[in-house]
């Protein structure tokens, strides 16, 4: 049980803090999943390793 009644200002401040917190969490999650998608489905990153592009060898039948 709260001894001090919550003021309107605290409620508004909490909504702002919660909103910003959720936005930041969502942004981090988006960055993570975007990175996973780019790495797993994107083009081979030979350029980052200083190598020319070489197509991946065909899998043996």
């Amino acid at each position: 049980m709260s001894f001090k009644p919550e003021h309107e200002i605290h409620r508004r401040r909490f909504s702002r803090n919660l909103g910003v917190g959720l936005c930041l969490a969502a942004f981090v999650m988006l960055g993570f999943f975007l990175t996973v998608e780019k790495v797993t489905r994107g083009n081979p990153m030979n350029a980052l390793q200083g190598k020319p592009f070489v197509a991946a060898p065909e899998a043996a039948p």
Partner: peptide
């Protein structure tokens, strides 16, 4: 005059 809530920024 009032503390802005998250909705005000939205």
């Amino acid at each position: 005059t009032v503390e802005p809530g998250f909705g005000d920024f939205v």
